[in-house]
Measured scan of single mutants.
Amino acid sequence: TLFEALYDYEARTEDDLSFHKGEKFQILNSSEGDWWEVRSLTTGETGYIPSPYLA
Score class of each variant (00 low, 15 high):
Thr1Ala: 12
Thr1His: 12
Leu2Lys: 03
Leu2Asp: 04
Leu2Val: 14
Leu2His: 07
Phe3Cys: 09
Phe3Ser: 02
Phe3Gln: 02
Phe3Lys: 01
Ala5Ser: 05
Ala5Val: 05
Ala5Cys: 07
Ala5Lys: 01
Ala5Arg: 00
Leu6Thr: 14
Leu6His: 05
Leu6Asp: 07
Tyr7Ser: 06
Tyr7Trp: 12
Tyr7Cys: 11
Tyr7Pro: 00
Tyr7Glu: 05
Tyr7Ala: 07
Asp8Trp: 03
Asp8Arg: 14
Asp8Ser: 07
Asp8Pro: 03
Tyr9Lys: 04
Tyr9His: 05
Tyr9Gln: 02
Tyr9Ser: 03
Tyr9Asp: 03
Glu10Thr: 12
Glu10Phe: 11
Glu10Gly: 02
Glu10Arg: 06
Ala11His: 05
Ala11Ile: 03
Ala11Phe: 02
Ala11Leu: 12
Ala11Trp: 15
Ala11Lys: 09
Arg12Glu: 08
Arg12Leu: 10
Thr13Ser: 12
Thr13Gly: 15
Thr13Phe: 15
Thr13Ile: 04
Thr13Tyr: 15
Glu14Gln: 11
Glu14Cys: 10
Glu14Met: 07
Glu14Lys: 11
Asp15Asn: 15
Asp15Leu: 13
Asp15Ala: 12
Asp16Tyr: 13
Asp16Phe: 14
Asp16Leu: 12
Asp16Gly: 15
Asp16Met: 14
Leu17Val: 12
Leu17Tyr: 04
Leu17Thr: 14
Ser18Cys: 04
Ser18Thr: 08
Ser18Pro: 04
Ser18Lys: 07
Phe19Lys: 01
Phe19Glu: 07
Phe19Trp: 02
His20Gln: 10
His20Glu: 07
His20Gly: 06
His20Asp: 03
Lys21Asp: 03
Lys21Thr: 09
Lys21His: 04
Lys21Trp: 03
Gly22Ser: 02
Gly22Lys: 00
Gly22Ile: 01
Gly22Val: 02
Glu23Val: 02
Glu23Asp: 15
Glu23Phe: 03
Lys24Asn: 03
Lys24Ser: 04
Lys24Trp: 14
Lys24Gln: 10
Phe25Glu: 00
Phe25Lys: 00
Phe25Trp: 01
Phe25Asn: 00
Gln26Met: 11
Gln26Trp: 14
Gln26Val: 14
Gln26Cys: 08
Gln26Arg: 04
Ile27Met: 04
Ile27Lys: 04
Ile27Phe: 09
Ile27Gly: 00
Ile27His: 00
Ile27Trp: 04
Ile27Val: 14
Leu28Pro: 01
Leu28Ala: 01
Leu28Gly: 01
Asn29Asp: 11
Asn29Cys: 10
Asn29Trp: 06
Asn29Phe: 05
Ser30Ala: 13
Ser30Ile: 12
Ser30Gly: 14
Ser30Cys: 12
Ser31Val: 09
Ser31Asn: 11
Ser31Asp: 12
Ser31Tyr: 08
Glu32Tyr: 13
Glu32Asp: 13
Glu32Cys: 14
Gly33Asp: 11
Gly33Trp: 10
Gly33Ile: 09
Gly33Met: 08
Asp34His: 08
Asp34Ile: 11
Asp34Tyr: 15
Asp34Met: 12
Trp35His: 05
Trp36Gln: 00
Trp36Phe: 03
Trp36Asn: 00
Trp36Met: 08
Trp36Glu: 01
Glu37Arg: 05
Glu37Cys: 08
Glu37Thr: 10
Val38Asp: 03
Val38Trp: 07
Val38Arg: 00
Val38His: 00
Val38Ile: 04
Arg39Pro: 03
Arg39Lys: 12
Arg39Ala: 06
Ser40Gly: 04
Ser40Asn: 14
Ser40Trp: 04
Ser40Gln: 06
Leu41Ile: 08
Leu41Asp: 09
Leu41Gly: 03
Thr42Cys: 07
Thr42Val: 08
Thr43Gln: 02
Thr43Asn: 04
Thr43Pro: 01
Gly44Thr: 00
Gly44Asn: 06
Gly44Ala: 01
Gly44Ser: 09
Gly44Trp: 03
Gly44Cys: 07
Glu45Gln: 14
Glu45Lys: 14
Glu45Ser: 07
Glu45Tyr: 07
Glu45Arg: 13
Thr46Tyr: 06
Thr46Trp: 06
Thr46Glu: 06
Thr46Asn: 04
Gly47Phe: 09
Gly47Arg: 03
Gly47His: 07
Gly47Asp: 00
Gly47Ser: 15
Tyr48Cys: 09
Tyr48Pro: 00
Tyr48Trp: 15
Tyr48Glu: 04
Ile49Trp: 02
Pro50Ala: 05
Pro50Phe: 15
Pro50Ser: 06
Pro50His: 13
Pro50Trp: 13
Pro50Cys: 12
Pro50Met: 13
Ser51Gln: 05
Pro52Met: 15
Pro52Trp: 15
Tyr53His: 10
Tyr53Thr: 08
Tyr53Gly: 06
Leu54Asn: 09
Leu54Phe: 09
Leu54Lys: 07
Leu54His: 07
Leu54Ile: 08
Leu54Cys: 08
Ala55Lys: 06
Ala55Val: 14
Ala55Phe: 10
